[in-house]
């Protein structure tokens, strides 16, 4: 049995841990609010972009059309972009994204497809390296940048586009965590190439009028699609960030509560032991006195 002094030390250390987790929880809560706003503010742009593209895509019929939109028509080489967090202590945030990606990659490999992996965020690297050694072609580390903005997403999108144009990939899929609410983040899959023309963005009713394009339709699409790629990556990164802080907040809240429970249990047994010792000493004194 641990001595009273050991128990006191133990209680002290759990209390110190509790203070840290409590502080982390509050920091995460503050950052969550900011990143949630950022994710929300970015939504109109992404939505408009999607509706503009689906509008344009509806206008392009038959053969041809930019490959970024339609894909190469092949389905052999897959590039899977896995975007997770850069830091830990956020419960199962990163591992749930990795798990979703792993299932997808295994299905593809079972079908005999070639899969390359591109990771964003430190926490995706190690588990994927273990599961699919040698298949990670590139890793982006975002821990250096404090905020997620267009400049963060740009190099990632450019790299994806470059690999696609170099023929290293026919299909590009992005894994990230969709921010549903503070208590619920869902690992999700988003097709990047070919661009998903989302069903929710219904084509706008033009009332019979024809669209006019300046410059031509193709030229607009050609500049718009790479930008759409960046937007898609950016919105995934923003959702990820909000989800990360939400997940961290929940995890740290739990940790704080667990530490509280532990302190209560330890204090109880500490007090019991202390009382038992006092009783024992009293008995010794009394029986000593009686012996006289």
């Amino acid at each position: 049995m641990a001595s009273l002094k050991d128990m006191r030390n133990r209680i002290g250390s759990v209390k110190a841990t509790q203070k840290i987790t409590k502080a982390m929880q509050m920091v995460a809560a503050a950052k969550l609010r900011r990143s949630q706003d950022a994710a929300q503010n970015a939504r109109p742009y992404a939505e408009r972009m999607a509706s503009v593209i689906s509008n344009l895509a509806a206008g392009i019929t038959g053969e041809g059309g930019p490959v970024l939109l339609k894909g190469t028509g092949r389905d052999q080489k897959h590039l899977v972009v896995v975007s997770a967090a850069d830091r830990g202590l956020a419960g199962g945030f990163s591992s749930s994204i990795v798990r979703a990606a792993k299932e997808h990659i295994e299905t593809l490999q079972a079908q005999g497809k070639q899969v390359a992996i591109l990771t964003v965020g430190k926490k995706a690297v190690a588990p994927l390296q273990r599961m699919f050694p040698g298949q990670i072609v590139q890793s982006f580390d975002l821990s250096g940048s404090r905020t997620v903005n267009l400049e963060t997403a740009q190099p990632i999108a450019e790299e994806i586009a470059r690999r696609f144009e170099a023929g290293e990939a026919d299909v590009v899929t992005l894994f990230y965590s969709r921010f549903k609410s503070v208590i619920s983040q869902q690992p999700s899959r988003r097709p990047l190439i070919p661009a998903a023309v989302e069903g929710e963005a219904a084509p706008i009713d033009l009332g019979g009028a024809a669209y006019e394009y300046e410059p031509s339709e193709e030229e607009i699409l050609e500049t718009l699609l790479p930008r759409n790629l960046t937007t898609q990556v950016l919105s995934a990164l923003l959702e990820n960030q909000a989800g990360f802080y939400a997940s961290q907040m929940t995890a740290m809240d739990n940790a704080t509560r667990n530490a509280g429970d532990m302190i209560a249990a330890l204090t109880l047994s500490y007090n019991r032991q202390r009382q038992a010792q006092i009783t024992k000493e009293l008995i010794e004194i009394i029986s000593g006195a009686e012996a006289l």
Binding site: L206, A210, E212, E214, P215, I220
Partner: peptide, 19 residues
């Protein structure tokens, strides 16, 4: 300012898209 010239848009403009 569009790539092919400045333009103005009033209510009820015809569908139109430009860089």
């Amino acid at each position: 300012a569009g790539v092919e010239g400045d333009f103005g848009v009033l209510p009820g403009h015809a569908p139109f898209m430009t860089a």
